[in-house]
């Protein structure tokens, strides 16, 4: 500390607040008058802005379009309203600031600060008051009260937790189930048409959902788990083990479209590289290797749906998904 202290003594001196310099508006009445006019012009401009807003609101239909350079063809109603409002507000602000800067006193004022700390006596008094208050309440002397109060307060904290219980049902094994069962037909999304293998050319994709019985409506909760992407390629392009190969049908392979990372719809299929890309976080999956992750943050392949054809030649699921679809959760594997 001694080092810095000696330096403080040797400081260059504070010359003090510089002398006040008068503005032109302080000394020259013409300049002051001009500033006054400028402020008035700004306020009048603001009034014009509001008039533009009123005019646009009443007289410009929202189907009118005008061509504005740089912006292009733009909705005149919206633009008139907005610009009117912007001009009205901005000019009020600019006028007020200009007024304050040029015509209101600009002499700086110096005010002293005070340390926030109370003096020692007050602090001691405060501590004493608290201590006395606590002593008077007798908390220290009556541990029974203290303990039961603590327990009561702690327990009452459980109330909101309990009352919030009915926010939703328990997940149970809901997250692990989809509507895919052995024999469920794959139908187009949207359109709900069943698909035959020969409907898909090599290199084709199709967005599908499980077929629902007549009258059963498909909700977003269903789509969020059931969406499946069909891809057809040449069977020899697959690089699958025999089990996974048996889940394909004539070069058609089916994956859950719900990303195993965070649940976005993964359907950016590149026919040339046979890669699937998720647009949200760019996880990349290799379709030929059962959607193995080859890039990005996803840790697991997309679940593959085993497919085959039914007696009428339509594509159906061989079995439900062998694992839960969508993002990971704690009990996913249990």
């Amino acid at each position: 500390m001694s080092n810095s202290e000696s330096r403080e003594v040797d400081l260059i001196k504070d010359p003090g607040l510089p002398a006040h310099v008068h503005r032109r508006t302080d000394t020259d009445p013409v300049a002051a008058k001009r500033a006054e006019r400028q402020v008035a012009i700004l306020f009048s401009l603001s009034a014009l802005g509001t008039l533009l807003l009123i005019f646009s609101f009443i007289f410009i239909s929202d189907e009118t379009f005008i061509f504005i350079p740089v912006m292009g063809e733009t909705n005149a109603h919206q633009l008139g309203l907005g610009l009117g409002m912007a001009i009205a507000l901005f000019c009020i602000g600019a006028g007020a600031i200009h007024w304050a800067k040029t015509l209101m006193p600009d002499e700086e004022i110096v005010v002293q600060r005070h340390e926030f700390r109370s003096d020692d006596e007050d602090r001691a008094d405060f501590v004493k008051t608290v201590k006395e208050g606590a002593a008077n309440a007798g908390l220290g002397r009556r541990p029974l009260i203290k303990r039961t109060l603590g327990a009561a307060l702690g327990l009452s904290g459980l109330t909101p937790l309990l009352l919030l219980r009915d926010l939703g049902p328990l997940p149970g094994d809901d997250l692990k189930k989809t509507h895919w069962k052995a024999g469920t037909r794959l139908v187009t999304d949207p359109g709900d048409r069943p698909i035959r293998p020969e409907d898909l050319e090599i290199g084709a994709v199709a967005q599908t959902q499980p077929e629902f019985p007549e009258g059963k409506e498909r909700h977003l909760e269903d789509i969020a788990k059931d969406a499946v992407l069909l891809i057809r390629m040449r069977p020899e392009e697959f690089n699958l083990d025999s089990e996974r190969l048996s889940w394909t049908h004539e070069g058609i392979i089916a994956f859950s479209k719900i990303c195993s990372h965070m649940g976005c719809a993964v359907a950016l299929y590149e026919q040339t590289t046979k890669h699937l890309l998720c647009p949200c976080h760019q996880s990349t999956f290799d379709v030929t290797r059962a959607a193995k992750v080859i890039f990005g943050p996803a840790a697991r392949p997309l679940p593959q749906l085993a497919i085959t054809v039914d007696a009428e030649g339509y594509l159906v699921a061989q079995a439900p998904f062998s694992e839960p679809v969508g993002p990971s959760f704690w009990g996913r594997l249990s």
Binding site: L79, G82, A86, L89, F90, I92, G93
Partner: peptide, 17 residues
């Protein structure tokens, strides 16, 4: 106070264009 109107004005300008 003036600056409030400025901020509102600039925001309205963005909203307009």
């Amino acid at each position: 106070g003036g600056f409030f109107f400025i901020v509102f004005g600039v925001t309205a300008f963005l909203g307009a264009v």
